[in-house]
Structure formats: C-alpha cells, structure tokens
Design a protein around this nucleic acid. Structure first.
Length: 611
DNA sequence: GCCGTCACG
DNA sequence: ACGTACGTGACGGCA
C-alpha cells in the first residue's frame, strides 16, 4: 500500500504518535514501547512457517493500531535472512494480546489464535474478524481470503505471497524489508477492512449475529480444533487390512463376471463393460457419458449380478480409502489426536464445515460404519458424550411457519413421522405401518428441502404423479407450512434474500430468473435456507454457552466435534453426570421457540457407543 | 482442475 | 420436453 507508512520496530517511529520514550537502545526495543494513549484496538497478523497450526512456529507478528501505522516484529527468521530477531517480543506482546480490554482485529483470527496458543499466548477480548464479516455480508461468496476481500471492498491488490517468497522455501528466509512490506500490509488491511465491513454489518442488521454469535464462536472453534479427537490407529489399520482382503475377493469376482479385467474405479471403463460388453440398458446420462451412480446400478441389479457387486465394491472401497487409510495420516505427532479444521465461512446457510479431515461425514450406517466409529475413542479415564437435537429442522419449521399440526405434534411429543403418515393415509396413529412411516419420513425431509413431485418421486421410487398426491395431501393438512413457503418465496423475490430467525441472510439472486429450472431451484433453497440456517444459529448459541460454562465452572470436559445437530464432548468420567445435565439444558434452551427442543444424549467409551 | 461418485447431517 | 430433492468434503480417474 503506497499511501501507508510501514515501520519495523527498529525504525524510529514518530514521537508524537508511538513512544513516550523514543530512545531505542540495545537489542530489545520492544520493551521501550510505551503508548501515550490507551490502545483502543489492535489488528494483528501472524507470519508462520509450516501449514499445520499445531506444529507451526511464528516467524513474525505484524501489528497495526491505526491506519497508516503498521509494524512488523521479526521473531524467528533464519540467520541467513539478516533479520534481527526479537525472541523476547513474544513476552511483551503477550501482555497486549491477552489484555481483555483491547479489541483484536484480524482476518481469520482463529488461525492466528491457534498459532499463538503454541507460544503460550491466549488471545482475549472482543474480536473483529474481517473474514467472518465478509462471510456474513455475502455467504454466497466462494472465497473470503484477504486478497479477495481487500479487492472487493478496498480495490486493493495485495502482493501475492508467492511473489514475496520468490525462490525461498519459507517466510523465515525473507529479508526484513520485504517481510515488513508484506506482513504489515496484512495487518493494516484488516484494520481498514474492519471499519468498512463493520459499518456494513450494522446497515444490514447483522451486527448482533456478528458480535453475539460468530465472534464468540471463534474462541469455541479454536479450542475444539486444538483439543482434537482421539483415534485408535491400530484398530483402523487392522480394519483396513481386513477390507483390503475383502476388496480383493470382490475384485476377482467382478472380473470373472465381466469376463475381463478393467479399472472398477473408472466410471468410463465401467460404463463400457455394463452398457457395451454386457449390453445392459443405460439409464440417465451425465455430462461425460452414461451414469453409473447408485440409483442406476440399483436398478440394473435386478437384471444382472454385476451391478450389485460393483455397488458393494464401491461402498467398501470408499470406506477404506476415505476413512481407514486417510485418517491415520492425519494423526498429529505431538498430540496423537486428529485435529480437524472447522470452517466458519464456507456454507451458504450458516452451517459450519469440517475439513482436513472432514469429521462431519464419518460413516455411521452398516457394520463398517459402526466399526469405524468405534475407533473414535475417549482418553483413558474419560468418556465420550454425544448430544444430538431430535428433529431440529422440523421443529424450526414448526416455529417459523407456525403450522398448527406440526406445532401440536411437537408440544405433545408425538413421533412426527408417524403422525405425518397417519395424515397422509387418513388413518389413526396406531394403524401406521413401518412402510407408511418410511414414506412419511421421506415426505417430511422433502418438505424441509423445498419439496417437488420429481424430487419426491426419485426418493421414493414412485411416479411423479403419485408423489404429487402425497404432497397435495400433506399441504392439505399443513396449511401453515404451505403459507410459509409462499411467503418466503415472495419475500425472496421482493428483497432478493432470505433470512434465518437470528437475521442471517442468504441472497437468492436466481429467484427471478426467467429460466424455470433455475428459478425453481432458487425457490427450493429459499425455502430450505432459513430452516437449515436457523438450526445452525441455534447450535452455535448452544456451543458458546456450553463453552462459557465449561470455563466458568472450571470443568475439564472438552467439546471436540460438531456435526450440524450433534455435539461430541470428551469428559473425565467423574464429570459425565453433571455434564450431561448441563449440555441438555444449554442445548434445549439455546433459544426459546414455540415448540420445545429435545436433545438425545448418549455416553460411551467410543463414538459408536455414545451415539 | 473438473467430473462423477458417495460419505455425512 | 425438461428434470433436482437441501447443505457439505474427499477420493480416484482423466484431460
């Protein structure tokens, strides 16, 4: 930034603005810094080396306390870089960063906080994260990197990191002049963005959501990531071996049936075998060729033995590669645990996402699902506590639609799918069969997704006409839900966005599209987003409250995973009793709806037992 | 890098 | 005639 003056702490700073005692002598100038005025807010950015926050080390810290005044403190540059390091700076900065009265500004603060934790610094005080601010302002934006956000709101083009790095391997090898220019720019950019984005958040009515939920949540997520979850590595390897053998057997069988060998994992080659060699009837097509997806293969399995074998192979192959083989590689050497990243700025609806590894899609169905979850364990002397909201999205729908029947069902604590079945088939609750309940359950899901006859017909494998009859029957009994859908679509058309109960916005730009497919898709997500998003708001509030109570009451229990409607905690055995009660209370009372919230809790030595 | 596929809520 | 259920992330194949 050319309009910005940047100083390292080794430069002489303007006396009037920075130091009461400008004399900088000796190798530890930081200790000389005394602010003439109280520090009202501070933006900072960590330069770190490595990529895993649990092993990363700080190379330097950039600070900015007002526009045009950014610093870079080199801490651990390599000797060849000719940077005078200031190892003691950590001690001095600790005081400021842990000062609760000083608000902290930054872009992706969770990352910097995790790095700082490795140095024994526990950031405290109010947070203003510009990445999260950008996300709330437009959750449809695919990338909220500082580069992108700076470009959008300040038309500022950042120097690409790779350019600063040049041929060097690590930021620790970058010379001080360049390090200052790059790092200080980040800190100042965040400071400038904060002013702009926070004003916009206020204008958009997002201030409360930002300050009361998303910012406090950063502390929760940082603690969860740092805690990680324990994995039984030996067991995963054992299971992988077993699956490898079974896959080999299935593979041979597949080749025997096909009459030749081929790459089963190649949809293209598989398509050729199925539809050319064997002459089976191709179903749907994809952009690139014949579909060999699950629906198609299940249909084909009725006529030939190969598709069934392929499905079985695919299932087991997926479990082996994605979980059994991938998870052990991500066990942290220091902690012996797996530390996922919880991403706060990814989904369009307000949910979290989890990556590297994704711990929100660990298998649960089937015998192998059970086996894999058994490998997620509690530390010795501890137990896992799984707490999940029962029917959270339908309860949210009952509240926001104010539908009489749906509300009534939850107040009376009636099995909602059975009740829907009774309505759809015009019979009493007692006469509902398993098959009727299954259909009703699918209809209820469909309602939440923004139901369509085609979607429901696919899910139930019935004709669209029949599906349409179920839908008509459903809306006949749930006029409130129908009104909610019509109202939501109308609002989306008018305002251009939909909102959750807590005011989280999702723009729906395609809602007025002249292409009916595009428009209908927009209508479905307009219906679904407030429901999914409100459920996301809710569990975030519960997480913050639970986190605060764990700290305040000095409990040793740690929250380790969030899976959209479930919280997984690891508790010392002697805390389990009180923790169960506490979590239930906080989850069920996160916010008050017109229907009760219900939480199911299980305890066990591993995730399978606890769930 | 994109596509198809499939694991989860 | 058309044709997707909503929201994610990771894997292998293939250009």
């Amino acid at each position: 930034m050319d309009k910005t003056k940047q100083y390292s702490l080794f430069d002489e700073a303007p006396e009037s603005r920075t130091c009461q005692e400008p004399e900088v002598k000796g190798p530890q100038p930081l200790k000389q810094i005394r602010y003439s005025q109280p520090l009202t807010e501070l933006s900072f950015d960590i330069e770190a080396t490595g990529r895993d926050p649990l092993s990363d080390t700080i190379v330097g810290i950039a600070l900015c306390r007002e526009k045009g005044m950014a610093y870079y403190v080199p801490i651990r540059h390599s000797p060849e870089s000719n940077v005078p390091n200031v190892p003691d700076a950590i001690e001095v900065l600790k005081e400021t960063l842990e000062d609760e009265s000083i608000p902290k500004i930054g872009h992706n603060l969770k990352y910097d906080m995790l790095i700082l934790k490795q140095e024994g610094i526990n950031v405290k005080g109010a947070l203003y994260d510009t990445m999260v601010a950008s996300y709330l302002l437009n959750p449809n934006k695919p990338n909220h990197s500082l580069e992108e956000v700076g470009l959008e709101y300040l038309s500022h083009k950042k120097v690409p990191f790779t350019e600063v790095l040049g041929k060097r391997h690590s930021f620790s090898e970058v010379a001080v002049d360049e390090a200052v220019t790059y790092a200080a720019e980040d800190a100042e950019l965040a400071m400038e963005l904060k002013c702009i984005l926070f004003e916009k958040l206020k204008d958009e009515g997002l201030e409360k959501l930002y300050l009361d939920i998303e910012m406090p949540l950063i502390y929760v997520l940082a603690d969860m990531e740092q805690a990680g979850v324990k994995i039984n590595n030996a067991r995963l390897e054992e299971l992988s071996g077993e699956l490898g053998i079974e896959l080999g057997t299935i593979e041979s069988r597949i080749y025997a049936i096909a009459g030749e060998t081929f790459n089963i994992n190649s949809p293209k080659q598989l398509g050729n075998i199925l539809f050319k060699t064997l002459g089976l009837q191709p179903g749907k097509k994809t952009k690139t060729g014949y579909s060999t997806g699950m629906n198609v293969l299940e249909e084909l399995a009725k006529d030939h033995e190969l598709p069934g074998e392929i499905l079985n192979y695919r299932t087991l192959y997926k479990l082996k590669t994605t979980y059994l083989d991938a998870l052990p590689k991500l066990i942290n050497r220091k902690t012996n645990r797996i530390h996922t990243s919880f991403n706060q700025t990814v989904t369009a609806t307000g949910r979290l996402s989890s990556s590297e590894p994704n711990l929100q899609n660990i298998p649960i169905r089937g015998e192998w699902g059970t086996k894999i979850r058994e490998a997620f364990t509690a530390e010795t002397g501890h137990c896992l506590i799984s707490s999940d909201y029962s029917q959270i999205e339908l309860r949210v729908l009952a509240h926001i639609s104010n539908d009489e029947g749906l509300t009534d069902a939850f107040i009376k604590d009636i099995d909602v799918h059975s009740r829907t079945a009774a309505e759809l088939f015009g019979i009493s609750l007692e006469s509902v069969t398993q098959e009727m309940r299954r259909i009703a359950k699918t209809v209820n899901f469909g309602v939440v997704y923004g139901i369509s006859p085609y979607g429901l017909s696919e899910a139930l494998d019935i004709s669209p006409k029949e599906a349409g009859q179920y839908i008509d029957q459903y809306f006949e009994k749930h006029k409130g839900v129908r009104a909610y859908m019509e109202r939501t679509i109308a609002e989306a058309k008018q305002a251009g966005y939909v909102i959750t109960l807590l005011g989280r916005k999702r723009p729906v730009p395609e809602i007025n599209s002249t292409n009916s497919n595009i428009r209908q898709q927009a209508e479905r997500l307009a219906i679904n987003s407030p429901i999914q998003g409100t459920a996301a708001d809710l569990i975030k509030i519960a997480m913050i409250n639970i986190h605060n109570r764990l700290k305040r009451e000095k409990l040793k229990t740690r929250m380790v995973l969030q899976i959209h409607d479930e919280l997984l905690c690891e508790a010392p055995e002697n805390e389990a009793g009180i923790i169960k009660d506490m979590i239930r209370h906080e989850m069920e009372n996160a916010i008050s709806l017109s229907v009760p919230l219900k939480v199911d809790i299980g305890v066990g030595k591993n995730w399978s037992e606890a769930h």
